[in-house]
């Protein structure tokens, strides 16, 4: 499958990836409205870590053997056998945070959406179920610090 990789040598810590992710996962798909008006405020699934000296944008690895999927008590977290995409079904998630305790990279967040705690994570900007799209974070990166390449795993 194709995976997003962080090239930390080029990361400026500008967080454009986070803005693009929020916009992509908003109701309006309009950056200004998404960031200033929408309730609940959209959550970025990519996290820029670090400071001026070292920064990198961390995304779900869509692991070959995802621990979040093995741990999930509700069946919400699943890996699509064909595409390799790991997604969480908000209708089934109960927000227990087993996935948070399992993910080795800190790539699942549990946030309150419309009064329910649910797990949110990178879905590779998929539009319908399990076909990965063109990740908005990669497209938004001005410096080649996020790439979307065919992986060897």
């Amino acid at each position: 499958m194709k995976r997003i990789y962080a090239i930390e040598a080029w990361c400026l810590g500008c967080k454009r990836c986070e803005i693009a992710c929020k916009t992509q996962h908003s109701a309006t798909r309009d950056t200004v409205k998404a960031l200033t008006q929408e309730q609940p405020s959209p959550t970025s699934r990519v996290q820029v870590e670090g400071d001026r000296f070292l920064s990198l944008a961390v995304n779900c690895r869509h692991c070959a053997q995802p621990k979040c999927v093995k741990g999930c008590i509700s069946g919400a977290m699943q890996k699509d056998p064909a595409s390799g995409l790991v997604t969480s079904d908000p209708a089934k998630c109960v927000g227990c945070r087993t996935c948070v305790s399992m993910c080795p990279f800190g790539c699942v967040q549990v946030v309150s959406v419309e009064g329910r705690d649910i797990a949110l994570k990178c879905d590779l900007c998929t539009e319908d179920g399990c076909i990965p799209g063109e990740p908005a974070c990669v497209a938004a990166c001005p410096n080649g610090a996020l790439v979307y390449w065919e992986s060897e795993e």
């Binding site: 995976r3 990789y5 962080a6 930390e8 870590e49 670090g50 070292l54 920064s55 990198l56 961390v58 690895r61 692991c63 070959a64 080795p104 990279f105 800190g106 390449w149 065919e150 992986s151 060897e152 795993e153």
Partner: peptide
């Protein structure tokens, strides 16, 4: 955070299957 790891470990952890 991932950036709490040293450079080598950080890369190895986050780059499974990197070309």
């Amino acid at each position: 955070l991932n950036c709490d790891f040293d450079k080598t470990m950080r890369w190895e952890r986050l780059h499974a299957g990197y070309p």
